[in-house]
Amino acid sequence: MSPAVRPVADDEWGIVAWLWQDFRHDLGTVVGGFPYADGRYQHAWLDEYPRPDGAGYLVWQPHPNTGEDAPVAFATVRGVGTGTCTMQAFFVVPAARRGGVGRWFARAVVARHPGTWTVPFQHDNHAAAAFWRRVAAELWDDAWVETEEPVPGKPDLAPDHWIRSTLSP
């Protein structure tokens, strides 16, 4: 069976919250992130969902031990309906990486929301940089730019990188 991408249902945001902790754990080495006193990593962005101008997606595929559908990736998007969407969060569980699921998923999410796109990632997140540059080239050919922008309120950090498409896919 192939993986399936579906919008996050109202009763599935708890699943995204579990995966979010993996996502933030992965970023911990890049952003120097520690869990807070309750044992959870930063989740303020996730707490904004569901939101009127947002969308969330999960990728499901059969679990190798049970065959039951299991979530292997999620994405959150803001700016839906505005003409420019932002990939606010994107995560593929480590066991599902390197097989093309991430690129397939990124293309599927972008295809659902016509218009231009922005994709931010941290300066020191080299895996994300390589991934998103490759995806941008596949989606937009040479109709994208990458800029560096200061992290708001954190002048001591390296700037974030932003990929911006200059036309719709």
Rank of each mutant, 00 (worst) to 15 (best):
D22H: 12
E148C: 04
T29P: 00
P169R: 13
A89Q: 09
S168D: 14
P152K: 07
A95L: 05
P152M: 07
H126K: 13
V93N: 08
R107S: 12
R78K: 09
L58I: 12
G32A: 02
P50E: 06
T66P: 01
H25R: 14
S165F: 09
G67W: 04
A143S: 12
Q42G: 03
F90Y: 15
E12H: 10
M1A: 15
V72L: 09
H123K: 05
T116I: 03
Y36S: 11
R133D: 09
M1I: 07
M1W: 08
S2D: 12
E138T: 11
G14M: 04
Y49M: 11
K154R: 15
W13L: 10
F121L: 12
W45Q: 05
G81C: 10
H43C: 06
Q122V: 05
P3M: 10
T84Q: 15
V110M: 04
G79L: 08
W132S: 06
T147N: 13
D156N: 05
W45N: 05
E138M: 12
E12Y: 10
G33E: 11
V110C: 11
S168K: 02
F121H: 13
D124T: 07
T118I: 02
D124H: 14
F105Q: 00
N125V: 05
G83Q: 09
A73G: 01
V135M: 07
G56F: 02
A158I: 08
A95S: 15
W132R: 05
V72E: 00
G153E: 09
D160L: 13
G56E: 04
L27M: 14
A108F: 05
V31P: 01
D141Q: 13
W45E: 05
A143F: 09
Y49I: 01
D142H: 10
P150A: 14
W104P: 08
A128M: 10
Q88L: 07
A75T: 11
P71R: 07
F131Y: 13
E149H: 15
G81W: 14
G32E: 06
P150E: 10
L139Y: 03
T66S: 15
P71G: 02
Y41G: 03
V5K: 07
D69K: 03
R164F: 01
G153Q: 08
F105K: 01
Y36W: 09
L27C: 04
P155N: 09
L27Q: 13
S165M: 05
L58E: 06
A4H: 06
V80M: 12
A70T: 13
T118M: 12
V135L: 02
H63C: 11
R51S: 12
W45R: 04
P159V: 08
R133F: 06
V31T: 08
G102F: 00
W117D: 05
Y36P: 00
V77K: 03
A137M: 03
A37E: 11
D38I: 02
R40V: 00
P155M: 03
G28I: 03
G83V: 14
V119N: 08
H25K: 10
V151R: 13
T116D: 12
